[in-house]
């Protein structure tokens, strides 16, 4: 993993027109190339707005007053357009219906690549590759609108992946998926890293995020409340609970054992860690 900074956000404040308070307040964080960042927070905390700042949808399309600077791979993006950003930062929207526009699945995937001027041969190759990655092989000729919610979600991911952006942002990409589908998307996130890509995911799936993300950013009312490794963030249960948020179930369990029964097993954040932490040789 390189040591290059992929995203540097400094003093970022954003306010929609005709509102009294900013939705993002003085945000700072740095993400290294190849890292996966998970953004968590309550509904309305500003997660999507923050993500949209990273590809310039905010403030160029969704307008308002933006202060502070965002650099992507060392370049200040304040003068860039959304189209300019498209080959660098891919964005998978929360509601796939808003993203899909073509008549067939393969045209859908080709659409974004076409805008980047990619050759026909390469397109064909990438369509097959990405369909396989998201488990939609054989769906080439289907209409995107005839797919189920979960399939649409995976198609939206495939069409962004095919553009091979350096940074991939996904806004609640698994909300409509079954457990297997969720795992598939998170596995895609892991693959992103092997391609040297950088990932940002917004989700409520704290359990999966604990094992797949390198960093977690907790947003509340437009402010960064915590930024650190999943271990650092999910160990702060009192703070999370104050914001009506939760940690992975195993972390919550360990916390209750400590508080209610004075049994200390540390703060495991994954099942594997918990199994180790809860190991008791024998019991009378």
């Amino acid at each position: 993993m390189s040591n290059r900074d992929a995203i540097v956000v400094e003093n970022l404040t954003f306010q929609y027109p005709d509102t009294e308070t900013p939705v993002l307040k003085n945000i700072h964080f740095t993400l290294k190339e190849g890292e996966v960042l998970g953004i968590i927070g309550r509904t309305g905390s500003g997660k999507t707005t923050l993500a949209m700042c990273l590809n310039r949808l905010v403030p160029t399309v969704i307008q308002g007053n933006l202060e502070g600077t965002i650099s992507v791979f060392g370049q200040d993006i304040s003068q860039r357009s959304v189209a300019d950003m498209a080959d660098k930062v891919g964005f998978v929207f929360q509601e796939p219906e808003n993203q899909l526009s073509q008549m067939t699945v393969e045209e859908e995937i080709a659409f974004g690549m076409g805008n980047l001027g990619i050759s026909r041969e390469e397109m064909k190759y990438r369509i097959q590759e990405t369909l396989k990655q998201v488990g939609l092989e054989g769906f080439e000729k289907r209409s995107p609108l005839a797919l189920s919610g979960g399939q649409q979600q995976r198609l939206a991911i495939a069409s962004v992946m095919a553009m091979r952006p350096s940074i991939m942002i996904m806004d609640e990409p698994t909300s409509m998926l079954d457990p297997r589908g969720k795992n598939e998307v998170y596995d895609v996130l892991r693959k992103i890293k092997t391609y040297g890509m950088t990932g940002v995911i917004i989700d409520h799936e704290v359990e999966r995020m604990a094992s797949y993300c390198d960093k977690i950013l907790v947003l509340d009312d437009g402010e960064v409340i915590m930024f650190g490794t999943p271990k650092e963030v999910f160990s702060e249960l009192t703070l999370l609970h104050e914001m009506e948020m939760n940690a992975p179930q195993v972390t919550e369990l360990a916390d209750r054992l400590r508080k209610e029964l004075q049994i200390d097993v540390g703060s495991p954040i994954t099942v594997e860690e918990a199994v180790k932490a809860f190991q008791i040789v024998s019991i009378k």
């Binding site: 049994i263 097993v265 540390g266 703060s267 495991p268 860690e273 180790k276 008791i280 024998s282 009378k284």
Partner: peptide
Amino acid sequence: KGLEEERKIGTGS
């Protein structure tokens, strides 16, 4: 109670 007698519960990670 049984746990306390054994004292073998892990210290976590």
